[in-house]
C-alpha cells in the first residue's frame, strides 16, 4: 500500500467536514496521511484518526498563517518530495485549489480540480468531474508526476475507520519569495448557528422572488435544519451577504436536498447547485427554467407556501 496525502482543511484546529470526506476517499487509494498546517493539532487529532489517518504530518510555522497560499504550497511540495505519495487530495475551496495549482507546478505533477468522485484505477486514481454547469460528466486521470486532486465538498459520505495515527512533525523551509503576499488583517465570518453552506445536507435558497424578505426562507430552513443560500440577484440587491451566494461566482453546493425559492434557475446559478441529489423549487412562474431540474416543484407564491410548509413541518416534528 502507498501513502496518500490529505491536506487538512481546518480553522484553528477545528477540522472541516470536507477533510473527513477526503480521508474516506483516500482510503480507496492507499493509506491516508493527514497533513496539518498551522496551529491547533490538539483539537484536530481525534477527528483525523476517526476517519482513518494512519499518519499525521504537522507543520507549524508562522509563515503558513501570515502569508497567502504560497507558503502552504511550499510546505506541501517539500513533504511530497520526501514522502512521495501516490496522490495528494485537497478540498476544492478557493485556497485549496490555489495551493494545488502551485503544488502542481512545483512538483511537475498533473492537477485535476473539482472532482466529485475518486476511484482507484489500473494506473492510479480515476476522477469524475461534473462540467459545463453539470451538463457533462467527465472521467480523467493524471498522467504525470504525483497526482493532485481537489475534491468538491459533499462528494462522498464520510465513513469512520480508526487510523493508526503516528504523528510526525515536519520542518519546512519557507522561502522569502513565498512571503510576499502578507495577510495584514483577518475578519472571521460571524457564526449564524446554521450549518455551513457547503457542508450542509439541506440548503434552502432565496432569490429575487423573496422581494428582500428572507424571513420565510430562514424559518423554513431552520425547520429542516438547513443552511440558507441566495442567488446573485438577492446578493446584489443587498438582501443577503455574498458569503451565502450559490453559483458560478459564489459557493458550489451539493447537498442531499436543495430548495430554490423565488429563483429562476439561470445557468450561473445552476453551476453551483446542479449536482444536488434532490432538487425542489417554489416559483410563481410555471415556465421558470428551474422547474426543468426539479424532482418536486410548487407553482405559487413563496410568501404563502413557505410559511404554510414550515408550520406543517413543525407540527409533524412535535
Amino acid at each position: 500500500m502507498t501513502e496518500i496525502l490529505v491536506l487538512v482543511d481546518h480553522i484553528n484546529g477545528a477540522v472541516r467536514k470536507t477533510t473527513a470526506e477526503l480521508l474516506t476517499l483516500a482510503r480507496r487509494l492507499g493509506e491516508p496521511s493527514a497533513v496539518f498546517l498551522g496551529a491547533g493539532i490538539e483539537s484536530a487529532r481525534d477527528a483525523l484518526s476517526k476517519y482513518g489517518a494512519d499518519k499525521i504530518y504537522t507543520v507549524d510555522d508562522d509563515a503558513l498563517v501570515d502569508y497567502l497560499v504560497a507558503p502552504k504550497a511550499e510546505a506541501l511540495a517539500q513533504l511530497v518530495e520526501q514522502v512521495r505519495p501516490a496522490a495528494t487530495l485537497i478540498a476544492s475551496s478557493p485556497e485549496g485549489k490555489e495551493v494545488a495549482a502551485r503544488l502542481a507546478i512545483k512538483t511537475s505533477s498533473g492537477l485535476i480540480t473539482d472532482a466529485v468522485d475518486v476511484a482507484q484505477g489500473a494506473s492510479g486514481p480515476v476522477t469524475t468531474q461534473s462540467v459545463f454547469a453539470g451538463n457533462y460528466s467527465v472521467t480523467a486521470q493524471v498522467t504525470q508526476g504525483r497526482p493532485i486532486i481537489t475534491v468538491k465538498p459533499n462528494s462522498v459520505t464520510p465513513q469512520e475507520s480508526q487510523g493508526a495515527v503516528v504523528e510526525k512533525s515536519f520542518e519546512v523551509e519557507v522561502s522569502a519569495a513565498a512571503k510576499s503576499a502578507r495577510i495584514v488583517e483577518r475578519l472571521p465570518r460571524e457564526a449564524t448557528g446554521r450549518p455551513e453552506l457547503t457542508e450542509a445536507a439541506i440548503v434552502v435558497s432565496g432569490g429575487r422572488g423573496t422581494g428582500g424578505n428572507f424571513g420565510p426562507v430562514e424559518e423554513f430552513a431552520d425547520a429542516l435544519g438547513a443552511a440558507v443560500g441566495a442567488s446573485r440577484a438577492a446578493v446584489d440587491s443587498g438582501w443577503y451577504p455574498h458569503a451565502y451566494q450559490v453559483g458560478q461566482t459564489g459557493k458550489t453546493v451539493s447537498p442531499q436536498l436543495y430548495v430554490a425559492t423565488g429563483i429562476s434557475g439561470a445557468i450561473q446559478h445552476r453551476a453551483g447547485m446542479q449536482t444536488s441529489k434532490t432538487i425542489v423549487a417554489i416559483n410563481k412562474d410555471d415556465g421558470a427554467p428551474i422547474f426543468e431540474l426539479v424532482d418536486f416543484g410548487v407553482v405559487g407564491d413563496l410568501h404563502a407556501v413557505l410559511p404554510a410548509a414550515t408550520e406543517l413541518i413543525r407540527k409533524r416534528k412535535s
Binding site: 457533462y136 460528466s137 472521467t139 486521470q141 498522467t143 426543468e292
Partner: peptide, 13 residues
C-alpha cells in the same frame, strides 16, 4: 499532465 478518459452528457433528469 492530465488525460480525459471519457465524457458523457448528463442523462436528462
Amino acid at each position: 499532465w492530465t488525460k480525459v478518459e471519457e465524457m458523457r452528457a448528463r442523462p436528462p433528469r
